[in-house]
């Protein structure tokens, strides 16, 4: 290899209940979504986020996997060879929000069974719809401690809060991990 700069591509699986805003979040802050309607028929959308770290090109390559029950049969196959995962839940104070929090553990275990112990980040989404001062994050905090995840980020596709910071955290984490293996 004559090039001193390296090129990394990390597959990131994005999961969570249907309707929590996975696609809106990822799509708004990434590029390259390809023929959305076609990809949806096979249960995933693809996009990427890239950044240069120490001159090396790093790319997070997102597999935004449909959360609906109908796509359950495909999901585990779509996880294959993921280097990290984002589990998205909603902070909305309604059934969808509460269930998405309760299901965090199910998503985590599903992922763990298929990919092993890969880094996981929680996106607590739709933060713009709630009053952050009164937010009780006790459940999420105990979850991330127990499951040894990278962290939790309060995110909003509407205001942009949290998303880029989280992507940067993931990309650096993976870069450091895999660069040191070379």
């Amino acid at each position: 290899m004559n090039d001193t700069h390296l090129k990394f591509v990390f597959k990131i699986t994005v999961i969570g209940d249907g309707g929590v805003g996975k696609t809106s979040l990822i799509k708004k802050y990434t590029e390259g979504t390809f023929e959305e309607d076609y990809i949806s028929t096979v249960g995933a959308q693809f996009s990427f986020y890239d950044e240069k770290i120490n001159g090396d090109e790093c790319k997070l390559y997102f597999w935004d996997i449909a959360g609906q029950k109908e796509f359950e049969f495909l999901r585990s196959d779509f996880y294959e060879e993921s280097k990290a995962a984002i589990i998205v839940c909603s902070l909305e104070e309604n059934n969808l929000g509460k269930e998405s929090l309760n299901h965090l553990v199910d998503w985590y275990e599903d992922l763990n069974n298929n990919c092993g112990d890969i880094p996981v980040v929680i996106f607590a989404n739709k933060v713009d719809l709630i009053d952050e001062e009164n937010l009780d994050e006790g459940y999420v905090q105990s979850f991330i401690k127990e499951k040894n995840t990278i962290g939790v980020y309060r995110t909003s596709a509407k205001t942009g809060q949290g998303v880029t910071d989280a992507f940067r955290k993931i990309i650096r984490e993976l870069y450091e991990k895999y660069k040191s293996n070379i």
């Binding site: 096979v42 249960g43 693809f46 196959d77």
Partner: peptide, 20 residues
């Protein structure tokens, strides 16, 4: 403007869908 990983991701998803 079409990233090569988007193309290969689509092909991979089709392949996995076919297997199912």
């Amino acid at each position: 403007n079409l990233d090569e990983h988007i193309v290969s991701g689509f092909f991979t998803a089709i392949k996995k869908f076919g297997q199912k």
